[in-house]
Amino acid sequence: MNVFQVAVLGVVCSLVLALIRRERPEMGVMLSLAAGAFILMLVAPRAVGIMLVFKDAAERAGVGSTYLGVALKVLGIAYVVDFAADLCRDAGEENLASRVELAGKILILVAALPVIEGVFQLIQSLLS
């Protein structure tokens, strides 16, 4: 899946969208959703390799795998929220987009709680 196929797909989809968005806006939103998801699914298998490299580096460096797991989870949540929020904004629903982003921020905070507690305990032990 080289970069040219991705670029061609993006250009073709935006051209078709220019045609149908004026006539049928709801179809346009669905097509842009499908195109966005499809382009990223083409790249996803490559990204798994990147994840493995980071995992090996973390183990070798002795960093606790919990921190890497939390970072990965936060990255995934941020990515999915960004995808959904941009789509809502694309469909003209500014309000929905900011609601989705707020929910995403809360979920990210929930996912990062153990790390935050660890930092507080570390500070406490340093001070005392």
Partner: peptide, 23 residues
């Protein structure tokens, strides 16, 4: 019709994301 096709694609997309990021 388009909605069913898109939801199937989105389901596959989100399941790959779930596998990738261990969500």
């Amino acid at each position: 019709v388009v909605l069913t096709m898109v939801t199937r694609l989105i389901w596959d997309f989100f399941s790959t994301i779930r596998v990738m990021f261990q969500l």
